[in-house]
Amino acid sequence: MPAHVSILQPVAVILLALVTAAWVTVVTGILRRRRFQAAARRAHRPPSAPPDLPGLPDQRQAGPELETVELTPAEKDAFAGLIRRLDRP
């Protein structure tokens, strides 16, 4: 080892390599566990179910209630006139 190199430099390199190896090991384990859990969820889901998209919130199964408005005879005539005008080429 050269005389101008402090003992702290090779120790820091070794420590950095160990921390990197530990980080890679932990991240790999987390990704494997998530992949296994996703596969288990897909196996238990009925085939007609939508795909699992974890980034989206759960959707309502039923839509909103239908709203209706009764039109007056004058509004019905105006709407019919509008439709006739739009039907012309």
Score class of each variant (00 low, 15 high):
1 M>G: 06
1 M>Y: 11
1 M>S: 08
3 A>D: 08
3 A>G: 04
4 H>T: 09
5 V>P: 01
5 V>A: 07
5 V>L: 11
6 S>Q: 02
7 I>M: 09
7 I>Y: 05
8 L>I: 08
9 Q>M: 14
11 V>W: 07
11 V>P: 02
11 V>I: 13
12 A>M: 06
12 A>N: 03
12 A>R: 01
12 A>L: 04
14 I>M: 09
14 I>G: 02
14 I>K: 08
14 I>N: 03
15 L>A: 14
15 L>D: 06
16 L>E: 02
16 L>I: 02
17 A>C: 10
17 A>Y: 05
17 A>I: 02
18 L>N: 05
19 V>I: 10
21 A>S: 05
21 A>E: 00
22 A>H: 02
22 A>K: 06
22 A>T: 02
22 A>W: 06
22 A>N: 03
23 W>S: 03
23 W>D: 01
24 V>H: 06
26 V>I: 11
26 V>C: 02
28 T>F: 04
29 G>I: 05
29 G>L: 06
30 I>P: 01
30 I>H: 06
30 I>R: 06
32 R>Q: 15
32 R>Y: 13
32 R>H: 14
33 R>E: 15
33 R>G: 13
34 R>L: 14
35 R>P: 03
35 R>D: 14
35 R>L: 14
36 F>A: 15
36 F>L: 15
38 A>P: 01
38 A>K: 13
39 A>D: 09
40 A>G: 11
40 A>W: 12
40 A>V: 07
42 R>I: 02
42 R>T: 03
43 A>L: 12
44 H>C: 14
46 P>A: 08
46 P>F: 03
47 P>E: 10
48 S>T: 04
49 A>G: 04
50 P>Q: 03
50 P>C: 06
50 P>K: 00
50 P>N: 04
50 P>W: 02
51 P>S: 13
51 P>Q: 09
52 D>K: 00
52 D>N: 04
52 D>S: 05
53 L>M: 09
53 L>F: 08
54 P>V: 09
54 P>C: 10
54 P>R: 01
55 G>N: 05
56 L>W: 09
56 L>R: 03
56 L>I: 10
57 P>A: 07
57 P>E: 08
58 D>V: 01
58 D>I: 00
59 Q>M: 12
60 R>E: 15
60 R>T: 14
60 R>S: 15
62 A>V: 08
62 A>Q: 11
63 G>S: 01
63 G>K: 00
64 P>E: 04
64 P>V: 05
65 E>L: 09
66 L>Q: 06
66 L>V: 12
67 E>M: 09
67 E>H: 11
68 T>S: 10
70 E>I: 05
71 L>V: 01
71 L>G: 00
72 T>R: 09
73 P>V: 00
74 A>F: 09
75 E>S: 02
76 K>L: 13
76 K>V: 05
76 K>D: 13
76 K>H: 13
77 D>F: 03
77 D>P: 00
78 A>G: 09
78 A>D: 14
79 F>K: 10
79 F>A: 10
79 F>W: 13
79 F>M: 13
80 A>C: 13
80 A>N: 15
81 G>D: 12
81 G>P: 01
82 L>N: 13
82 L>P: 01
82 L>W: 11
82 L>D: 14
83 I>Y: 06
83 I>K: 11
84 R>G: 11
84 R>M: 12
86 L>P: 00
86 L>C: 07
88 R>M: 07
88 R>A: 08
88 R>V: 10
